[in-house]
Amino acid sequence: MLKKVFVLAVLAVFALLLFRSFGWTDAGTELNEVATRYAEDGPQEVGAANLVTAVIVTYRGLDTLGEVTILFLTASIIGFFLATGRKGEHVPPTVRNTSEILQTASRVITPVIFLIGIYVFINGHLTPGGGFQGGAIVASGLVLMLLANPGRKVSHSLISAVESISGISFVLLGILGIILASGFLDNSILGYGRFGTLFSAGAIPVIYIFVGLKVGSELSGIVSNLQQTTKEDI
């Protein structure tokens, strides 16, 4: 009984704090100064039509580097924590065959899903989308493949190789920005092109391709680790 009263008191204090800090603030009618600067000078300085992409890749590029590092750390901790048996020994799981419809349909739909994912992160600077969304869609395609065929052996070395190469290329492109242009992850190392076409916005498509491949392979690695873990000998 006392515990319930205590929990209610904690919730009431939280509710009071939250309502006080956000409360009934009206939505503004004008953008504030930082957003005005991004919206007015963004197309000239960066060349991307999608303002959110411009903010993520160039204006706040260091935050993207931090996020990529955190994702890499998470994927490697999960891979270390869940043992998948000794190397070279693949215990075939005793599952029954999935239905015919699922197997046939997955063979048709999985390439389409991969194609949509790659399209989303190549066109990140023109339409809503980008590296993170495209990577998540590619990982969903891999999940469909694993669902239709649970005994399928996913090669962990391929996933680690793709992830490492994409991560190193992302950091190398950032350092190239320091050497050739004015700062880390500056995208004026390639030409700007015409505003609104595919080959515009400098190095943003190349950077986003590497980010998309890295996020997609990391999420696929997490899912396949969770599926293939066996009980280690305690």
């Binding site: 957003a35 903010v55 993170f132």
Partner: peptide, 16 residues
């Protein structure tokens, strides 16, 4: 453009 769009900065933070 600056008079017709919503703020892009919180959206970038939320994506991360």
């Amino acid at each position: 453009a600056a008079r017709e769009v919503v703020d892009p900065l919180p959206q970038a933070m939320v994506l991360t």
